Simulated assay, not measured.
Amino acid sequence: MTGEPNLLGDYVRARRELVTPDQAGIPVLGVRRVPGLRREEVAMLAGISADYYLRLEQGRDRNPSVQVLESLARVLRLDDDATAYLLNLGAAATPRRRRRRPRKETVPAGIAQLVATLPLPALVEGRCFDVLAANALATALSPRLTPGANRLRSIFLDPAEQDLHPDWENAALGMVAGFRESVGAGTDDPRVIELVGELSLASPRFSRLWARHDVALCEGGPKRIDHPQVGALRLNRERLGIDGTTGQTLVIYHPDPGTDSADRLALLAAAIQPAATRPEAIGPEPA
């Protein structure tokens, strides 16, 4: 087992440190030297032996049953997404063969054409939140939404990107949790290792959030953006998996019809429209 990543053990240890004795219904007697629950408390509440739980956390037992994992999920107060993630880690806990060098991510031609022609901000993200394709309106929404950029790197390391998000703390938290969900048990992927290593060194905030092992789906929902040209925007974000790819996602932003955000997004679209194609530039039809 030496050298194998201990994803399952790291995850349950991080999550038990976030559950208080009060939440678990355990009376506190005296001074506690560890944050959250003790190992033996988790084992007792989950109905397993303390020695078996210790082996799980240390990576010396990598074949827990679904029943054990579901009991741990209950004790650790995991929601549905986090429970699914834990079960996936348990299924993937056996040693894997050495990974091949990852192939370059290529956006299907039809999807690239769709992104370019959509009248809404649209882009394609890779599994590690690399921007693989984006239309002009997406780039106008944020100059960091351009092929070759990485959304995690932008939101943690670029002050201009941070200024776009009035609720940056929540945006950063959600992005890290979504990244955990996206890569799953593949944290030994060279691209993931490179990105996590870079961000952990450059951003203490990322390092703290990554250590929490939060996991959540990057679902749609209203996103607030403070745009320097058109002002406050409230946009819905839809994320659609792309068939035939490994983790690529089509992301589309759209406002609720008839709102100030719809008007402001239309102003932004008009500002980037080539002058020759604007209605006022075309002029009246000849008589």
Rank of each mutant, 00 (worst) to 15 (best):
G126H: 00
G126F: 03
G126N: 00
R127L: 14
R127M: 09
L132C: 03
L132V: 00
A133Q: 05
A133Y: 01
A133V: 02
A133W: 01
A133T: 00
A134Y: 04
A134C: 08
A134L: 07
A134D: 03
A136E: 10
A136M: 02
L137Y: 04
T139Q: 09
T139E: 10
A140G: 03
A140W: 02
A140K: 02
A140L: 05
L141Y: 04
L141S: 04
S142A: 14
S142D: 11
S142K: 00
P143S: 09
P143V: 01
R144W: 08
L145G: 00
L145K: 00
T146M: 07
T146Y: 05
G148N: 07
G148T: 01
A149E: 11
N150H: 01
R151A: 14
R151Q: 10
L152C: 09
L152G: 06
L152P: 04
R153F: 07
R153G: 04
S154E: 13
I155Y: 09
I155A: 12
I155L: 15
I155T: 12
F156C: 07
L157A: 10
P159I: 09
P159S: 11
P159T: 04
A160P: 01
E161V: 14
E161H: 12
E161P: 01
E161L: 05
E161M: 14
Q162T: 05
Q162V: 12
Q162K: 12
Q162I: 10
D163A: 15
L164V: 06
L164E: 06
H165P: 04
H165Y: 14
P166M: 14
D167W: 08
D167A: 14
W168I: 15
W168E: 10
E169K: 06
E169G: 03
E169Q: 13
E169R: 11
N170R: 11
A171Q: 12
L173N: 05
L173V: 07
L173I: 09
L173D: 13
M175N: 04
V176W: 12
G178E: 06
F179T: 01
F179K: 01
F179V: 03
F179P: 03
R180K: 12
R180I: 07
E181I: 01
S182I: 05
S182F: 10
V183A: 11
G184L: 12
G184N: 05
A185C: 07
A185D: 13
A185S: 15
A185E: 12
G186Q: 13
G186D: 15
D188F: 12
P190T: 06
R191L: 14
V192K: 04
I193H: 08
I193N: 03
L195S: 07
V196T: 15
E198S: 13
E198V: 05
L199F: 13
S200K: 03
S200R: 11
L201D: 11
L201S: 13
L201F: 06
L201V: 11
A202Q: 13
A202D: 07
A202I: 02
A202C: 04
S203T: 02
S203L: 11
S203E: 08
P204A: 10
P204E: 06
P204G: 09
R205F: 09
R205W: 05
F206A: 13
F206W: 08
F206E: 11
F206K: 07
S207N: 11
S207C: 13
S207P: 01
S207L: 14
R208Y: 06
R208N: 09
L209T: 03
L209D: 08
L209I: 09
L209Q: 12
W210T: 11
W210L: 14
